[in-house]
Amino acid sequence: MHFTINGTKYDADPDIRTSLLDLLREHLGLTGSKKGCDHGQCGACTVLVNGRRINSCLTLAVMHQDDEITTIEGIGTPDNLAPLQSAFVRHDGFQCGYCTPGQICSATGMLDEAKKGWPSHVSESLDGDIALSDEEIRERMSGNLCRCSAYPNIVDAIREIAGEDA
């Protein structure tokens, strides 16, 4: 099977049952994406597929051979952090850090959704302007759990970047 991840081509021959998450971690050594629950309930495995955030644990690798996949490794590097990554550092948006790659991939996709004008469950109007209030950020990020409960600082970090984008 052939994959395009963070702009790099990879060949791999995983068992047909392999999830996209296991392909990344176990076959390609891209261990930034994390496995929390393996059932779509925690968001630790969030990656971007063709720019959209998804749970990589609930999809098969074989289904994504023609896609552009972006993982946390493709969002930024230790010497060249993406703005969201530096904001998480600045605001202390983590404790153990296990949920962080998923939070950052998810927030990247979420900011894009907001830019497209997608409403959320807490949006007063379905077709109004999207202002990313704390309430909006919390709702839109509810698919990413944090066992350390760094939520207030995660919201601070995302709010800072959302403000810059606006």
């Binding site: 779509g40 955030r53 749970n55 609930l58 999809t59 996709g109 979420m110 698919g143």
Partner: peptide, 12 residues
């Protein structure tokens, strides 16, 4: 739809 699941799940 917006009341269901999460942003990631709704994308899939």
């Amino acid at each position: 739809l917006l009341a269901g699941a999460s942003g990631q799940l709704r994308n899939k």
